[in-house]
């Protein structure tokens, strides 16, 4: 059996100090991030625009439906408003070189407003730790349907 003794030398000490400094820096960064959070919980609503849905799809959605995130599963809130519009798409009119808003037959665009509670800080609005921002693609589900759309509006009370 080897009777080699472990010798702790100056270089081992330097490496340990550097390791401790790196761990401290990571710890400080994590602490700063967590202490920035949750100053305030507010009543909050966001509206998504789900485009180009079948005409009958709107019948599946009702005010009061419980809405969850369909990817992560956490609870958002309830549908507070549903606006149904004929589906439209921006297309080029090559006859005279303009853009027009063309109706898509037998399709609807839906604006779904979800009322919930959100944590609001100076830097961000979050629900269950997830940032909510204009233009974010949302994937929402309720008991009988899933719907995708970009956030087009939001309101903090």
């Amino acid at each position: 059996m080897s009777d080699k003794k472990f010798k702790f030398n100056a270089f081992d000490a330097i490496i340990i100090v550097i390791f401790v400094l790196i761990l401290s820096a990571i710890g400080i960064k994590i602490y700063e991030k967590s202490s920035q959070s949750v100053n305030d919980t507010h009543k909050f609503s966001f509206t998504i625009e789900a485009k180009n849905l079948d005409q009958n799809f709107k019948d599946k959605i009702s005010v009061g439906d419980k809405i969850r995130d369909s990817v992560h599963g956490f609870f958002y809130g309830h549908v507070s408003n549903l606006k149904v519009k004929p589906a439209q798409k921006i297309v080029e009119n090559n006859t005279n070189g303009t853009y027009i808003l063309a109706d898509i037959p037998q399709k609807n665009d839906l604006e779904i407003t979800v009322e919930c509670k959100a944590d609001v800080t100076d830097d961000a609005i979050t629900i269950d730790g997830h940032h909510i921002r204009i233009g974010k693609l949302m994937s929402l589900k309720s008991k009988g349907y899933v719907v995708y759309g970009y956030i087009i509006d939001m309101e903090v009370e």
């Binding site: 921006i90 080029e92 009119n93 090559n94 006859t95 005279n96 070189g97 303009t98 853009y99 027009i100 808003l101």
Partner: peptide
């Protein structure tokens, strides 16, 4: 505004609705 080409290959500067 963006550019749209007409049938004659001419580019027109056109306003995009709601954008």
């Amino acid at each position: 505004f963006d550019y749209v080409v007409d049938v004659n290959g001419v580019l027109h500067k056109a306003q995009k609705p709601d954008k």
